[in-house]
Structure formats: C-alpha cells, structure tokens
Amino acid sequence: ILQTYRAIANYEKTSGSEMALSTGDVVEVVEKSESGWWFCQMKAKRGWIPASFLEPLDSPDETEDP
C-alpha cells in the first residue's frame, strides 16, 4: 500500500527524473531512498522529490494546535 503525503512547499524539478510540486499537492510515495529522495506519483506524473518537501497527509495542520 502506498503512503500518501502532502507537499509543504513548491518544488521546481531540475532534471527529467524529478517531479515538480506545488504547495498542497497530494502525492503517493512509491519508493523511499536513503539519500532523502522519494519516488512519488501524482495522477499521470511520476518522479523523484526531496522528502523534506513532504509531510504525511494524516498529520495535523499547524493551525490546529491548541
């Protein structure tokens, strides 16, 4: 089962193997590399994304803190 994550910042791809993101995009993580790059898919797009640009979809938003 794939894990679902949300983009927390815009990411512009710098090579053909990467995938561009916009803040709020929801992606499915296909593979996690120890290098800190994750292979993700979103609709018909697939590519590598730095893991630091993603957060788990089920994590609470910062605005929901008590």
Rank of each mutant, 00 (worst) to 15 (best):
I1F: 11
I1L: 08
L2D: 15
L2P: 09
L2M: 15
Q3N: 15
Q3T: 15
T4A: 07
T4P: 06
Y5L: 02
Y5F: 09
Y5R: 02
Y5M: 08
Y5A: 11
R6W: 02
A7Y: 03
A7W: 01
A7E: 01
A7S: 05
A7K: 00
I8A: 00
I8K: 12
I8S: 05
I8V: 04
I8Q: 04
A9R: 14
A9V: 06
A9Y: 09
A9C: 12
A9N: 12
A9F: 07
N10V: 06
N10P: 11
N10S: 11
N10E: 09
Y11L: 09
Y11I: 11
Y11P: 01
E12D: 10
E12F: 06
E12Y: 10
K13T: 14
K13M: 09
T14P: 09
T14I: 10
T14V: 10
T14M: 09
S15C: 11
S15A: 07
S15T: 12
S15L: 08
S15I: 08
S15W: 07
G16N: 15
G16A: 15
G16D: 15
G16K: 12
G16E: 15
S17Y: 10
S17V: 10
E18S: 07
E18W: 04
M19G: 00
M19I: 07
A20E: 10
A20L: 03
L21W: 02
L21F: 05
L21D: 00
L21I: 14
L21K: 00
T23K: 15
T23L: 11
T23M: 13
G24P: 01
G24W: 01
G24M: 02
V26T: 10
V26K: 08
V27T: 02
V27I: 06
E28C: 04
E28S: 07
E28N: 08
E28R: 06
V29K: 00
V29P: 01
V30K: 09
V30A: 04
V30M: 11
V30L: 15
V30S: 05
E31D: 09
K32E: 03
K32S: 03
K32T: 05
K32Q: 07
S33N: 13
E34Q: 09
E34I: 08
E34F: 05
E34K: 12
E34W: 04
S35Q: 07
S35D: 13
S35V: 05
S35H: 10
G36Y: 02
G36N: 06
G36S: 03
W37K: 08
W37Q: 06
W38I: 03
F39S: 03
F39G: 01
C40R: 02
C40F: 00
C40Q: 01
C40T: 02
C40I: 05
C40H: 01
Q41W: 02
Q41D: 04
Q41F: 04
M42S: 12
K43D: 15
K43I: 05
K43V: 07
K43E: 15
A44F: 08
A44K: 13
A44V: 06
A44C: 11
A44R: 11
A44D: 15
K45I: 10
K45P: 01
R46I: 05
R46T: 11
R46P: 02
G47I: 02
G47E: 02
G47F: 05
G47V: 02
W48E: 01
W48C: 02
W48L: 05
I49K: 00
I49M: 03
P50H: 06
P50M: 03
P50T: 01
P50W: 03
A51K: 09
A51P: 05
S52M: 11
S52T: 12
S52A: 12
F53T: 10
F53V: 15
F53W: 07
F53R: 07
F53P: 00
F53C: 15
L54E: 00
E55A: 11
E55F: 04
E55Q: 10
E55C: 08
P56S: 07
P56F: 04
P56T: 04
P56H: 06
L57N: 11
L57M: 14
L57Q: 08
L57S: 10
D58A: 13
D58W: 11
S59D: 14
S59R: 13
P60R: 13
P60N: 14
D61W: 09
D61I: 13
D61F: 11
E62M: 12
E62D: 13
E62Q: 12
E62T: 13
T63A: 11
T63V: 14
T63L: 12
T63Y: 11
E64Q: 14
E64R: 11
E64Y: 12
E64P: 12
D65C: 12
D65N: 14
D65S: 13
D65G: 13
D65W: 08
P66G: 08
P66Q: 05
P66N: 07
